[in-house]
Every structure is written in structure tokens, then in C-alpha cells.
Design a protein around this nucleic acid. Structure first.
Lengths: 246, 246
DNA sequence: AGAAAACACTATGCAGTGCAAGGAGTAAAA
DNA sequence: TTTTACTCCTTGCACTGCATAGTGTTTTCT
């Protein structure tokens, strides 16, 4: 009945915040550690970037250091923790100047910056996101967004909605952008879309779904579609806030 | 160099649209099939609902029919196809009356209906979503949404953005709602949040992140948070459209 | 100084995965 | 009647996360 303070969770949180004042759960006895958490995460991220999240296994990551899979456990705890640490590590927020021209530009700069991070690490879209389980880097993004909303006097009641919608939209558009670049690098020629296959299997698809099959892409260059969709969405959202805030 | 018509893809599409005019790739020779695709999908969905998507394996699903894992392959092709079929099967659109009171109510009814489906099958949030790989049930949702936008004269240029944001927001809020009900049924008492652990590890978190740690929940009953967040988001979005459309 | 505890890393092994390959039996087509 | 295509089974492979036990190393306690 002792109040056990969930040491695994504490260790995980301390690893997440290791560069922000938390002390790493470093061993006090036993042999020196031969690996480094940051290098482990860099290796894992490199693998995920190149071959997808599914290619990240304890054994593969450890092999980059000539070690066995079990050697990672003192550093990361569990596989799930490893992925969470990779997620936050890859989410480091770049520096940019906050536009002074208005709310729309401010939100747009934020959204595009986050979009770029997701494009650089497409597997981030496969990871869950919530405000309750964040590391410092992810927290930076949220704080920055709220600062923009505060700066432009978005009423507090509207902020949670904006946060939810913006994050969700960035993640969604980045996800389809990542899918695009995936099929780009595997050769468009041999790629036959499921959409096309559906058109031939269901010849009257256009009649049955006139509106959804008639949707026109937002830009002629379909590669840019997700980015443009994000820009338009931000504008729409900002216009709603302009109305509320005005 | 023959133009091979990608038979696996065709078979998959025909299975997806099997109840909408497509002919199932049914065998013409050999022993009678002892299983039924719809029953397989129902079994898989039941497992995913009860134990999560990770618990769905070919062997476990097949065991429900006293068969081995390999027995599923004539019916679904691959594991990934099985999951895609489950996804569409679980996305069947319920019937509801389209509100005649305005765009906001129309969008809200749509969003809540989709939200409920996601709550009934929380693993849907773990599945990728894109307009390019949809089955009939998912297509129904999109068409319905576009009909609402058409009905209330939302300008065509704004529609793709609304579609993206609404889907993304529903999926995001449903995802956190699913997380809530997960920790509800595993007992709140023993559940110690990572957020709490962070607060104790980083005592000055509130000073460092005044805005994000000061975010107030949108409703006193935190259980209802996602639903209310969704409602607010829809309202915000509709207000933007009201301005554009007006 | 010496004993004991706590640690890093390895080796082994378990239970599980998707699925390729091959075989036995069955039904329809040639 | 023979051939072909099919269903379902068995076997087996390569892979996963990780529990367990063992070896050697470093620090702490006596």
C-alpha cells in the first residue's frame, strides 16, 4: 500500500526534459555508460526519416553503435518511450521573426514552420498528439502559438478551438504532403492510384458522388496542394477571429 | 513489359465496393468458401473496439472462426488491406436529418455524427485518412459534407479548406476523447498523468510556459472537453464562412 | 581494505507478428 | 476425364519487444 511514485514515468519525464534543467537518471554505480541518449535519438530519427517509423526497432538502432537491442533499455526505458523521445527531439522549434503585420501572418508563419518540421520528419504524423503528453520542444510550439494569439488580442474563449484546429490542420496537410513525396521518390510511372482503380471499377462514380469527385484542386501544381490548403485554412481561421476580435 | 493491371489493387477496390455494385473477386473453381468477408470484418472490428488495433492479427481474427491466420488471405489480400476494409466498414454513415436552420447547425450535425463514429471505434483515429484512398462509406461522409456546404452557398474556393479543417478537427478531438475514456475504464485512481509528473520534475513550469499551462478547460466537466471543443471549433469555422458568404 | 550493492551490457529465449512456400483435397472448366 | 484454380492447412522464416540470467565494472557502505 506504499505510495509508489511511478519511477518509470518520472525517469521518462526527466529524460524528456534533460536539456531544460531536469537531471538525467544517471547511474551512480557500475560501469561507465558507453552510449549517449541524444546520439541514440539521432540514430533513431535518421532511420525513421529514411525508412519509416516501422523500420525503427531496438535492435536496428542499437546496431548503429555495435550493440544489442537490450543495450538501449537503460537509456530509454521502453520502445514506446524511445519513440516519444524521438518525437520531441525531432520537434525542436526553429527560430523565426514574428510578423508584425497582423494575426493572419503571425498564424501563417507559425503554421508553416510546424509544417516544415513535419515534412522533414514525416513519421511525426503517425505519432499521437495531445496537450497532456508533451516534451519541452512540443511545449515550445504551443506556447509560441498562444503568444501570437495573445499578441493579437484573440479572446481567451476562442483560443482552445484555434489551437485544436491549427494543430490538426497542420498535421493533416503535412500527412498528405508526406504521402505525395513518398510516391514521388518511388516513381510516379509505376504508381497506379487507388482513386484511378476505383474509377474503372465503379464507372458511374462521378454520378454517384458529383460533389466529391468534382472537387477541384486548390492549385494547378498538385504537389503544392497541401501547402496551399494549409495557407487557405489559416486565412479562413484568421478571418473568423478577425470577426470575433473586432 | 506487359501492362499488368495491378490485380491486387483491383481486387482490393472491388472488395471495398462490394456492396455498391462491384463484383467480389469470387473464386470460380475450388472448394466453397467457408468464411464471409463481412463477418471477418465484423470480427476484426470487434477485436479492435475491445482491445485496440494492435490486438488485431490475422491469427487472432481467424481463430474466431476456428481457422488459421493464412485462411484470411483469399478474403482480404494482405493485413494492410484488412485494416483498410475494417476502416471503411466501421465508417458506415448513420441517417440523420439535415438541419434547416443554418450552416452552423448543418456542419455541427455532420461533425457530431462523425465524432460519434470515431468514438465508437477509437482505433479509427490511428488509421491514416486521405481523400485519395477511400471506400464507399468514407466517400459518403465527404459527399454529405459537400452537400451541406453547397446547400448554404459556401463559395467553392473555400470548400477544400473547410473539408480539411473539419475532418482534421473531428479526428483530433475524437482522439483525445478516446484517450479519456481509455483512462476512465482503467481506473483514474492509479492513473498518474505525465502532466503531473512534469509539474513535479520541473517546478517552475508555470513560469516558463505561462500561457500554455494557464490554458483553462473549455468546460468544467473535463470529460466533455473534446465534444465542447469540437462544437466551438465548428462555430468558429462557420462564423468565418458566414463572413465570406455574406 | 574489503564486502556489498547497483549498474551496463550480452546472451538466450519466449511469445508473438506477417506472410512465403508447399501440400491435400475440392470443385469447376476444358 | 484431365486439367486448372481454388481453399485451407502446415511448416517455416525473419523479425519484433522484452523478460531473465549472467558477467564484469564501478561506487558506496562497513
Amino acid at each position: 500500500m506504499a505510495v509508489e511514485p511511478d519511477r518509470d514515468m518520472d525517469a521518462h519525464v526527466r529524460r524528456l526534459w534533460r536539456h531544460r534543467g531536469a537531471t538525467l537518471p544517471t547511474p551512480r554505480r557500475g560501469p561507465r555508460q558507453q552510449l549517449d541518449l541524444d546520439e541514440i535519438l539521432r540514430a533513431g530519427i535518421a532511420i525513421a526519416d529514411a525508412e519509416g517509423l516501422a523500420a525503427v526497432s531496438t535492435r536496428v538502432v542499437a546496431a548503429r553503435f555495435g550493440k544489442t537491442g537490450m543495450a538501449l533499455y537503460p537509456y530509454v526505458g521502453t520502445k514506446e518511450n524511445l519513440l516519444a523521445l524521438m518525437q520531441d527531439h525531432a520537434s525542436a522549434m526553429p527560430a523565426w521573426e514574428d510578423p508584425v503585420t497582423g494575426l493572419t501572418d503571425g498564424l501563417h508563419a507559425w503554421a508553416v514552420a510546424l509544417f516544415e518540421v513535419y515534412l522533414a520528419h514525416p513519421w511525426l504524423t503517425e505519432r499521437p498528439w495531445s496537450q497532456a503528453t508533451q516534451g519541452p520542444n512540443e511545449q515550445d510550439w504551443l506556447e509560441r502559438l498562444l503568444r501570437i494569439l495573445h499578441r493579437w488580442d484573440v479572446p481567451p474563449g476562442a483560443r482552445p478551438s484555434v489551437v485544436t484546429m491549427l494543430y490538426a490542420t497542420v498535421r493533416a496537410t503535412a500527412g498528405t504532403a508526406a504521402a505525395y513525396q513518398r510516391m514521388n521518390q518511388q516513381g510516379i510511372a509505376e504508381w497506379r492510384g487507388q482513386a484511378e482503380a476505383t474509377m474503372t471499377q465503379i464507372p458511374d462514380l462521378r454520378q454517384r458522388y458529383p460533389l466529391s469527385t468534382g472537387l477541384e484542386p486548390v492549385t494547378p501544381h498538385w504537389q503544392d496542394n497541401p501547402r496551399v490548403a494549409l495557407t487557405n485554412s489559416v486565412q479562413l481561421l484568421a478571418s473568423a477571429l478577425g470577426r470575433t476580435a473586432g
